[in-house]
Nucleic acid binder design. Structure first.
Length: 507
RNA sequence: GCGGGCGUAGCUCAAUGGUAGAGCAUCAGCCUUCCAAGCUGAAUGUUGACGGUUCGAGUCCGUUCGCCCGCUCCA
């Protein structure tokens, strides 16, 4: 077992042991790709979402060149009119079994491919798009060349069959419609990763609906509503945090690829002429945000997508990737995509009947334009997992070797409050201190067992500070503050605990 | 999807085909004046599930499910 796998196993074990993350419905054997957050996990995840909402929506950064811009939020329904997903391109070809060509990366509907084969069924076969004369023509020419015969004589020697009637074991002999090499077609697979459900009591095709596979479309669908109700002006952004669902074929790596997950997405609308400037601004802003929350920059790798990787409508896209312990390669935390006017035009066309239905007026030139969109789309669960793996520390010289070095803003518990012993009137002093602190921060009071065990428990929870009330507190009115990261101690006046926390946490 | 490995208490692991156990963790109490100390006690199981062989199965056989690893896949 590799060292990184071992580390990952320790992290998963700690998450379970301390109540960060459990497998969903474990008592019934679990369900792959679904996870529950426990008492500590929910605090961590909530802190992450609060940080994002605060830093991006409530108090957004200043734009390039000191420009101000507005940010507003929405919270859209998970189930939407299925037409949303037709317009966005999520349904359509994706409901049916598909065949991929490994060479050309083209994807074909399995029921729309035919194959030209020799009457004996032997030798190479030639696939083409059914009812596409041009594609069939190309296949026939290639077949004629292969069989060293004329296209006229070919009809005598060959027969046409539907791809779906062939055994997948014969696929290595098939030449794809656009391929140069033989045997590059995959077996037909269902590619609709959207969860289906039914709205209303009747379960038929007219009531079919989908759980959203991304939060973005709810924002696009409400673009006009937000424009009309809030007096925002281009450039501005709409943010949303919410659950999305993808029926992943193969969920792996703890919570990294889950079937139910939460997203934090911004759709930023701007003048096409300035779109690249805003794209670069958001890419850099988002990278800095992760660094500000304790992700080391050397583990954070922005990866600019090459032209061949980009969606056809996209001008640029950067995946902000993080080096998780479960892989030698960095994995995507967030995608910052320049989506052009693709989405607004698609919905304008589908819902309003013309592509420019969502155009806005340029005050200076009095011309109408469809805004371009910059989309920083982050995975809440992925960043939660990244902050956990980043925080995980091991020092065999400590009494409690494992500890979680969370950034103070993210730490689930901000402080522990302990009477050194549960007698001599110490709990009576400690309890009011705790009652005062908990009004402002999530804290924990513990009087059980030895002080060492209590510190160790707080280390595993990632609590940055512990206040310990001892006999000197009675005499001098001071308490011990114990620091999680180096186990160092200092004494402060017991009345200064809240002030101390505010100062050290920076919040 | 393919191949390999593993399933016994919350965790780490024991138990010749013959009464399912230990340590840690948890809880209660004692002790304890700053880093998982000690003592006493308590609670904890459909041995992943189903079926078969057997007088008797955690153990042998079959099936199945789950998890992990490697490939594959990931609009």
């Amino acid at each position: 077992m590799s060292k990184s796998t071992e580390t990952m196993e320790k992290i998963v074990a700690l998450c379970r042991r301390r109540g960060f993350i459990f497998g969903s419905s474990e008592i019934y054997g679990g369900l792959g790709g679904f996870w529950d957050y426990g008492p500590l996990g929910v605090e961590l995840k909530r802190n992450i979402k609060d940080c994002w909402w605060n830093d991006m929506i409530k108090n957004p950064p200043t734009g390039p060149g000191g420009r101000k811009f507005q940010m507003v939020g929405v919270d859209c329904s998970i189930i939407m009119n299925p037409k949303v997903w037709e317009a966005s391109g999520h349904v359509g070809g994706f409901s049916d079994p598909m065949v991929d060509c490994k060479e050309t990366k083209n994807r074909y509907r399995a029921d729309q491919l035919s194959v030209l084969q020799t009457k004996s069924g032997e030798g190479q076969m030639f696939a083409f798009a059914t009812d596409d004369d041009e594609s069939e023509d190309r296949a026939r020419k290639k077949a004629a060349k292969y069989l060293k015969t004329s296209t006229d004589a070919l009809a005598e020697m060959t027969t046409v069959v539907a791809l779906e009637t062939l055994e997948t074991s014969t696929f290595p002999s098939i030449l794809g419609p656009d391929a140069k090499e033989v045997g590059t077609l995959t077996e037909p697979r269902a590619f609709n990763l959207m969860f289906e459900t039914f709205v209303g009591a009747l379960q038929d095709s007219t009531s079919k609906a989908y759980l959203r596979p991304e939060t973005a479309q709810g924002i696009f669908a409400n673009f006009k509503n937000v424009m009309d109700s809030t007096r925002v002006k281009i450039p501005f952004g709409i943010g949303q945090i919410g659950k999305s669902f993808r029926n992943e074929i193969n969920p792996r790596n703890f919570t990294f690829r889950s079937r139910e997950f939460e997203q934090m997405e911004i759709e930023f609308f701007c003048d096409p002429k300035e779109s690249m400037v805003w794209y670069e601004f958001w890419r850099d802003t988002r990278i800095k945000w992760y660094e500000s929350l304790g992700i080391k920059s050397e583990k954070l790798r922005p990866r600019e997508q090459g032209d061949e990787e980009l969606a056809h409508y996209s001008d640029a896209c950067t995946d902000i990737e993080y080096l998780f312990p479960f892989s030698d390669e960095t994995q995507e935390l967030e995608g910052v995509a320049h989506r052009g006017d693709f989405d607004l035009k698609a919905h304008g066309k589908a819902a309003k009947g013309k592509e420019n239905a969502f155009a806005v007026l340029d005050d200076a030139t009095k011309e109408r334009f469809v805004p371009h969109v910059i989309e920083p789309s982050a995975g809440v669960d992925r960043f939660t997992l990244a902050s956990i793996t980043e925080a995980y520390s091991y020092d065999e010289n400590r009494a409690s070797p494992e500890f979680m070095k969370f950034h103070p803003r993210l730490a689930p518990i901000k402080a522990g409050v302990f009477p050194l012993v549960a007698k001599d009137g110490l709990p009576e002093i400690a309890e009011p201190i705790y009652a005062d602190l908990r009004k402002h921060f999530f804290c924990q009071y513990d009087a059980k067992q030895t002080i060492g065990k209590r510190y160790a428990r707080m280390d595993e929870a990632g609590t940055p500070f512990c206040f310990t009330i001892d006999h000197d507190t009675k005499e001098a009115g001071t308490v011990t503050v114990r620091n999680r990261d180096d186990a160092s101690q200092e004494r402060i006046d017991k009345s200064r605990c809240l002030e101390y926390l505010r100062d050290k946490l920076g919040i």
